[in-house]
Each structure stands twice: as C-alpha cells, then as structure tokens.
Amino acid sequence: MNLSGVSWAAVLAGAAGAAALSYALVILGFGLGLSSVSPWAAAGASATTIGVATILWLTLTQIAASSLGGYIAGRLRVKWPTVHTDEVYFRDTAHGFLSWAVASLLVAAFLANAIAGVIGGGAKIAATTAGTAAAAAGVVATKAAGELDAQGYFVDSLLRAPPAAATDASLPAPASTDAQVRDEVGRIFATSIATGDLSAADRAYLGQVVARRAGIDPVQGEQRVNDVYVQFKQSVENAKTNAKEAADTARKASAGIAIWLFISLLCGAFFASLSATIGGRHRDVFVHGPRTAHR
C-alpha cells in the first residue's frame, strides 16, 4: 500500500507538461507579436494594443498550461481507496497546485534573466532618473558644441585674449581656428549649464567673439549671446523633462507588467488546482468506478 499523500511522479509529469506547453505558447506569442509590429510609421499595431495583447496572452498561457499540468497530475496520481472523498478532493487540489509550482519554478529558472529584467527595469530606471536627466543635458550640450571639458574650460579662461583684441585692429587677432573657437564656445556653454548660469565675464567674452565673426557691434554680439544661451538652456531643460517623463512611463509600465504577471500566476494556480480535481475524478470514475465515501 502506498502511504504517501503525494504522488510525485504525477506531479512531475504534470509540471513537465505545463512547462513545455508554456514554453511553446510563449514562443508562439513572440512570433505573433513580431508579426504585428512594423518599423514604418502608421503601420502595425500600436504600443497600447501590443501591451494589452501581451498581458492577455500571458494570462491565457498560464491558464492553458496550468490546466493541462493540473489535469495530468490529477489523472495520473495514485488512487487512495481508503481515503474520505473530501480528503481525496483536497489531495487532488494539492497535486494540481504542486504541479503548477514546480512548472513555475522550471520556467523561472530558464527565464530568470528576462523576468529580472522586466521587474527590475522600473526600479532601476526610477533610481537613475536623475542620472538620465543629467545625461540628456550632456547630450544636448555635446550636440551643440562638443563634450563638456571642465579642465579645458579653465585652461581657456587662463589663455583667453583680452576682449579688446576682438575689435582693436592694432592688436593681433587670437590665433584660433574655426574648430578651436567652436570647441571653446561649446565648453563655455556646457560649463554654464552645469554651474547654473553664464557668468558676466563669459558673456562679455562671447559677445566679443560673436561681434568679430559676425561683423556686428559688440553690444549686439552680447545680445545675440544672451538670446542663444536662453534657447540653449531651454533645450536642455526640455531634454531633462523628457528624460524624466520617459523614466516615469517606463516605471509605470514595469509596475503594470509585474502586477499582471502576478495575477496571471494566480490564475494559473487556481486552474491547475481545479483541473487536478477534474483529472482525479475522471481517473476514479473511468478506471476504478465511482468514488465512495470512506470515513
């Protein structure tokens, strides 16, 4: 007589079937998802549609795979001829739950990195929002005028020609190429964004540089510097705002996916347990005849 309340062979068989079907359905879901997206504008499914479809597919995958695993575990378990009917139902339910648990652990073991990436993505992005915003500001500064170089900025300040050299024809013009001037202006702008404002000395110097290169009055040159700097600073602020909004959107999406994964797993546990009772009932009826109560 088998005295064990658990038929581990049936549990493992059900778990194997559930894991295999789950794997197959996930692969099918990937294929359907890739076929519904397109790199072309106004073509393919929208992000919202893909998100909802993914959630529904994961839930249906859990229900289908867990139901199969639970039914197999219940149908293949050892008969307990001397056990009360209520206890039989409980053991069948436990067998379905165990098959779901083992299958979930098997799937999680193979997809651990993917699961960790999905769930941890939101927390990681939220924790690095400030860094993302700073990086975005750096990207804007880089695109506008070269990478931020704090040491280069102070070297420029040390070797900077007097502002009079920009307008006094009796003094030699600074020996700088176009690229060097652009790099220097970029470093000044990038440093001013990092420190919070453009200093009066930098403003006056840039006004002289613009006046010489554009052939305008130094006052007009400084005004142009002010206008461009305001636009540049606003573009950096917009980049920071966009980075924060993107981080917040990603955080909410990751949180939603994690919650729906939890709900789908609960659905899987329920249907595995229910299917195991059905499988056990079929085994007792079709193989050993109707159940009889034992007290």
Rank of each mutant, 00 (worst) to 15 (best):
G69K: 12
D178M: 09
W260I: 01
G131Y: 04
A161T: 12
A211V: 02
A150E: 07
R187I: 07
A53P: 01
L159K: 01
S275I: 04
A42C: 06
S7Y: 12
I263D: 08
Y71E: 01
T292I: 05
R213S: 12
I115A: 06
H288W: 10
Y23K: 10
T129Y: 06
L32R: 11
Y71V: 05
Q234A: 13
G152Q: 08
G70L: 14
T292F: 09
D284V: 10
V155H: 08
W8D: 00
L98V: 00
I278T: 15
V155S: 10
G29T: 12
W260Y: 11
G31C: 00
M1V: 04
A179P: 00
A169V: 07
S275F: 09
A10M: 05
A137L: 01
I216T: 05
S46R: 09
D183L: 04
Q223L: 14
R77N: 04
E87M: 11
S192Q: 09
F30M: 02
Y153R: 13
P174N: 05
S99G: 03
V228K: 04
A133Y: 02
L159F: 05
A144E: 14
A45Y: 10
E245R: 04
A45C: 11
V287I: 13
A204C: 00
N242G: 11
G186D: 06
T49G: 06
L159D: 11
A169L: 15
A269S: 08
T292H: 01
A136I: 05
T93R: 04
G122Y: 15
I278L: 11
A258K: 07
L265Q: 10
G33F: 03
F30W: 15
G96K: 06
S7N: 15
A42V: 00
A64L: 07
G44Y: 02
A243I: 14
F110N: 12
A250F: 10
A43I: 07
V230Y: 08
Q180T: 11
H95F: 09
Y89A: 10
V181A: 09
G256P: 07
R182G: 00
A47H: 10
A94W: 10
A194P: 00
T292G: 08
Q231T: 08
C267F: 15
A166K: 07
P290S: 11
R77Y: 02
Y89F: 11
L76Y: 06
A19L: 03
V236F: 01
I193D: 02
A18Q: 09
L58W: 14
S235G: 15
R75T: 01
T48A: 09
R203Y: 08
E184D: 05
L68K: 12
S170T: 15
R212Q: 08
E245V: 11
T167I: 13
I27S: 14
A200R: 10
F262I: 13
Y153D: 13
V11P: 15
P290H: 13
G29H: 02
R224M: 12
G256S: 07
V210M: 07
Q234R: 13
V219W: 04
S273F: 01
G117W: 00
T93S: 08
Y23F: 13
V102R: 06
G96P: 06
R224T: 05
L159A: 05
F189L: 09
A239N: 13
D197E: 13
A114H: 05
I125Q: 13
A126M: 14
T128P: 00
A13K: 05
A123F: 04
A16K: 03
G51A: 14
S67N: 03
F271R: 02
A130L: 11
